[in-house]
Simulated assay, not measured.
Amino acid sequence: MRIIITDCAGNRWPLAELPGAVIFRLFPCPFVPLSKAVPCSPAARCGENDRGSQLTRRADSTGDSEQTARGRRDGRGAFRAYDQIPQPALLRGMAGDRLRAFLSECSQHSHPASTEILRQGEKAENAFLIARGRVEVSYIDIDGNVIIAHIARPGEVVGEVELFSGRPCAASCRTLPDTVLLSFGADLLFRHVPAAVLLKNLANIMHDRLTRDNRQQSIAQFYPADRRICLHLLNLTTPMDPETRIGQADLASLSGTSRETVNRTLAKLRAMAIIDIGRGRVRILDRARLEAVKLN
Rank of each mutant, 00 (worst) to 15 (best):
1 M>K: 09
10 G>L: 06
15 L>I: 10
17 E>D: 15
20 G>K: 03
22 V>T: 12
27 F>V: 02
28 P>C: 03
30 P>I: 01
32 V>C: 12
32 V>T: 05
35 S>H: 15
47 G>S: 10
49 N>C: 09
55 L>E: 04
68 T>A: 01
71 G>C: 11
73 R>C: 03
74 D>C: 08
76 R>E: 15
78 A>W: 04
85 I>V: 12
101 A>L: 03
102 F>A: 02
105 E>F: 05
106 C>A: 12
107 S>V: 14
109 H>D: 04
109 H>Y: 12
117 I>G: 06
122 E>L: 00
126 N>P: 08
127 A>P: 02
129 L>I: 04
130 I>N: 02
132 R>E: 02
139 Y>N: 00
139 Y>G: 01
142 I>A: 06
145 N>C: 07
146 V>K: 07
156 E>Q: 14
157 V>D: 06
158 V>G: 01
165 S>F: 04
166 G>E: 09
169 C>E: 11
169 C>Q: 07
174 R>K: 05
179 T>E: 10
184 F>W: 08
187 D>W: 07
189 L>T: 00
191 R>P: 00
193 V>L: 11
194 P>H: 12
212 R>C: 09
214 N>C: 11
223 Y>V: 02
231 L>K: 07
231 L>N: 05
234 L>S: 08
238 T>P: 15
240 M>F: 12
241 D>P: 00
247 G>Y: 03
249 A>Y: 15
251 L>F: 07
260 E>K: 13
261 T>M: 09
264 R>H: 08
264 R>C: 02
266 L>H: 04
273 A>V: 03
274 I>Y: 15
278 G>D: 06
282 V>K: 11
283 R>I: 05
296 N>W: 14
